[in-house]
Amino acid sequence: MRRVVAYELVSLDGVAEAPDEFITGWDSVMDDNLAAVIGTQDAVVLGRRSHDEWAGYWPGSDIEPFATFINGVAKYVATSTPLTTDWPGSTVIEGDLAAFVRDLRQQPGGDVGVHASISVTQALLAAGLVDELRLVISPNIAGRGRRLLEGLPAIAMETLRTARTPTGHLLVDLRPA
């Protein structure tokens, strides 16, 4: 069975929206961590907002290793309306998100990634479909914005790994206990 791995950048106070406002630096340890995460993924589930923002940015980006990965990977988009941007590899999820991901997990392939999409990560966590949550936690307090874990039911988590990067960010890998 495929695993669902959610990778999120969050502030110290749990904000995941607009990470460019609280991620104060990027370093080689963070690059290596991201490369390890995407190195096992061959599909990604995105929310509509993330898809549309990224479709306008990543096709012209040379920021590696993510640009090559996200431009080439199969992208499944949780939305109730047709896509308005043409980004190769993008497909609208028909029907219920949780049911789609349950089915996708049963198909052969690598890990299924969830990147940046707050509502998708929340929905899949609540449905018990996230096998691993990989966080990059900024040492900064954002003060405002959508929080990644807000509104979720109680979920017992087990810490798999923690590390500190040279720029002071924490890498925390968790899985449901």
Score class of each variant (00 low, 15 high):
G72V: 07
G72E: 11
A123L: 03
A116G: 13
V15G: 03
A43K: 05
T40F: 04
T121N: 04
P19A: 05
E94D: 02
E17Y: 01
Q106I: 03
D131L: 09
V73F: 03
E8S: 09
T121L: 04
Q107W: 08
A127D: 03
D31A: 09
V77M: 10
V15S: 02
E21H: 09
A43D: 06
L133R: 03
V112S: 00
I93T: 12
G110S: 07
E53K: 13
L125S: 01
S61T: 15
V136M: 07
D131R: 07
G89T: 10
R105D: 06
S138T: 02
T81H: 12
T84G: 06
L104N: 03
R102W: 00
F100C: 11
D131F: 06
L133F: 05
V5Y: 07
A36N: 06
L125D: 03
S117T: 11
A35Q: 09
E64F: 06
S50Q: 13
D13M: 01
N71A: 09
Y57K: 14
T68I: 07
T85H: 15
G109D: 10
K75M: 13
V112G: 07
T121A: 11
L83K: 14
D32E: 06
G113K: 11
F100H: 13
F66S: 04
T79D: 09
L125C: 08
R102M: 00
L129G: 01
T68Y: 12
P59N: 15
G109F: 02
Q107H: 04
L9I: 05
H115T: 11
A16P: 02
E132S: 10
D42Y: 02
D52T: 12
R102Q: 09
P65H: 10
G14F: 03
V37I: 14
D42H: 06
F100Y: 13
V37H: 03
S138A: 05
D62T: 11
F100P: 08
I93P: 02
T24R: 10
S61L: 15
S11P: 02
R105M: 04
Q41C: 14
A36V: 01
S138P: 03
P59A: 14
L124D: 01
R134M: 04
